[in-house]
Write a protein that binds this DNA or RNA. Structure first.
Lengths: 189, 189
DNA sequence: CTATAATACTAATCAGATTAGGAAAATAGC
DNA sequence: GCTATTTTCCTAATCTGATTAGTATTATAG
């Protein structure tokens, strides 16, 4: 029995790949082990349990999302930054359905880990709102507005929940327009 | 073996109750059968499988949501109606975590059934936007904006994903303010 | 009062997670 | 390079919960 030369991050990465191509529920210890060429009990050398694996997938997703969003907003500010970050979020969700699904489903604040992973992101968004002359308190509310919209919209799209043929891309852009116009009324408040 | 006097809707209702009190994942055929006082294989007289049961729970949720939202907007129009409907949605999600969770997770358009259940709701929302002199095309986009926000925000709240102590109720109200101000810029377009 | 359908049950089977115990490969320290 | 330790992997076994098969009993239709 030659060793497979795996490590924890390789296992998570393969699980992410599977989740994206076949759906989060298709990731079982059994199926993952098979793809990795080992027996399922051997996976316990890398993760403590299936639910821990899913949690790792959640953190993996938030890390990648943060990275993409920070990159997207680098060097710009104001509404343009907000828009670019939002698009980066949406694009990631579209291109990584399974991981995004995990990011949402296991997005419990309880354990604090997810919070730590995205702390940098929050800082940037607060700074954007600061630049727009929006009070800290309102920024806290607005972050929730944006999170709610972005996560909900992406979830709906990924679930094919929008039944009619109207362009989803256009809906996303118009939604950002609407949100931004609304946020403008809070400048200086 | 005296018959339990069950029927499909009683089974779904009990499953809903369990989902709300113990979480959607706590609803298994085993646990549900136990609560109903029967053996788990007997459940197959009412539902075809566990996943069918979950789908029924999803439809059950959308039906209740529709009913509450229609009631909330009866007799009013415009932004007031939009606000009341949104609050009804939010309150339902807060008070029925498990069922709401099912409503989101199984909210695939694919099978059309979910669509049929909420068709009446859509009609009303289109009418509200019509009353605001917003074009049909923009209404289609705006419904998606609202759905995205409402579903995402409620999901985040239910998952305790908002880590800081700022009032969530206030965030919800301010979010509605922002959305409505944004929508106002589309009147007549 | 019978024929049929509906509702339960028990006994099995199956899939997948997890645990236990042990062997081979890699690695650390000498 | 050699031995002790750790790591990685395996097989065998257990457990939980879904699902199927086959059967008995209760309700209901006529």
């Amino acid at each position: 029995m030659a060793k497979a030369g795996l490590d924890k991050s390789a296992v998570i990465a393969k699980a992410a790949e599977m989740a994206n191509s076949e759906g989060l529920d298709a990731v079982t210890l059994k199926s993952l082990a098979e793809v990795l060429g080992i027996q399922s009990p051997s996976l316990y050398n890398y993760v403590g349990s299936l639910s821990e694996l899913k949690k790792e997938l959640m953190l993996y997703g938030w890390r990648q999302l943060e990275e993409r969003m920070l990159r997207a907003s680098a060097g710009i500010s104001g509404y343009k930054a907000l828009r670019e970050m939002s698009r980066a979020f949406y694009n990631y969700a579209r291109e990584n359905k399974g991981v995004f699904d995990a990011a949402l489903r296991y997005n419990k604040f309880a354990d604090g880990e997810a919070m730590a992973v995205t702390a940098g992101l929050f800082d940037v968004v607060y700074r954007i709102f600061e630049g727009l002359n929006i009070s800290r308190e309102n920024s806290e509310h607005l972050i929730r507005t944006m999170r709610g919209f972005l996560e909900g919209f992406a979830l709906l799209v990924n679930n094919d929940a929008f039944g009619n043929p109207v362009s989803v891309e256009k809906s996303f852009e118009l939604s950002l327009d609407v949100l931004i116009e609304g946020i403008k009324t809070l400048e200086g408040k």
